[in-house]
């Protein structure tokens, strides 16, 4: 009886997830203890922890997170504004949709990483190049989802609104925007994580500050404890962002109340 209840508790997803993380740490610890892996490739958890306290105490962590998040935020806001605006503008004309939608999809399929050197050339080694790079990458899913969202709004609703004389601005506010919103929000979420990943990637490739820079820099100095400490910081940051995004989405669901999905 008791046993079963205990089993019930520990088989809940939360416990299994926590168990998985604990297992990774234990495996990590055992592997480094065995001494069969060079500490250059895999430093011990203790060494990483020491490096972590050191970078936290020096204030480097706060500074790097600040730089990266500011870069991501600027890039993302730019991408969100440009992406949704461009998306809506394109749906104003069927011709533009037919012309630009495949073009945007095609461009999005190209690994833009190839053009990162170009961004460096244009915008320098500072945050500017990362902003432009992140903004460009995040623009595509946002614009594409905006187009898709508007196009998939039920044509019957549009016909009904037209028959009642809806002028374009009301058609937009009452029908197209609310109808397209779920798909647009999906685009905005995807765009955000692409933006974050892209900025970090850019910082890792070439930069003077930020989380990506710290990881790459530690690697270059062969200070792997420090590098792992920075990676843990990055993981913690992304985890917080994912939580935040989930929170925001649930908040929106609550605001929309009894509505069907």
């Amino acid at each position: 009886m008791r046993m079963q209840r205990l089993l019930g508790i520990f088989s809940s997803p939360k416990w299994i997830q926590a168990g998985f993380i604990a297992a990774v740490f234990v495996a990590w610890h055992v592997l480094t203890l065995s001494g069969r892996i060079s500490s250059l490739f895999l430093p011990s958890p203790g060494a990483v922890y020491a490096a972590l306290t050191q970078i936290v105490a020096s204030g480097a962590v706060v500074q790097a997170i600040g730089t990266t998040l500011r870069t991501v935020l600027i890039a993302y806001v730019g991408a969100a504004v440009l992406g949704t605006t461009a998306g809506f503008a394109i749906t104003r004309s069927q011709y533009l949709c037919r012309l630009l939608e495949p073009l945007l999809s095609g461009l999005f399929a190209i690994p833009l990483t190839l053009f990162f050197p170009l961004f460096l050339l244009f915008f320098g080694i500072g945050p500017g190049s990362k902003i432009a790079y992140g903004m460009t990458y995040a623009f595509f899913p946002i614009a594409l989802n905006t187009i898709s969202g508007v196009i998939h709004v039920d044509g019957k609703l549009i016909a009904a609104a037209r028959s009642m004389g809806a002028p374009p601005h009301l058609l937009f506010r009452r029908v197209l925007l609310p109808g397209a919103l779920p798909v647009i929000l999906t685009g905005l979420r995807i765009g955000f994580f692409i933006c974050f990943a892209t900025v970090l990637g850019g910082e890792t490739l070439s930069s003077i500050s930020g989380l990506g820079h710290e990881v790459a820099n530690s690697a270059q100095l062969m200070d792997s404890s420090r590098m792992f400490a920075w990676i843990l910081v990055v993981i913690a940051t992304s985890f917080c962002l994912v939580m935040l995004a989930g929170r925001l989405e649930r908040l929106r669901g609550d605001l929309r109340g009894g509505e069907s999905r």
Binding site: T91, R92, Q94, R98, E101, V150, G155, I158, R162, L171
Partner: peptide, 10 residues
């Protein structure tokens, strides 16, 4: 879908 939807935002 494009071909079918006439004038998505008239």
């Amino acid at each position: 879908q494009l071909a079918e939807v006439a004038d998505p935002w008239p």
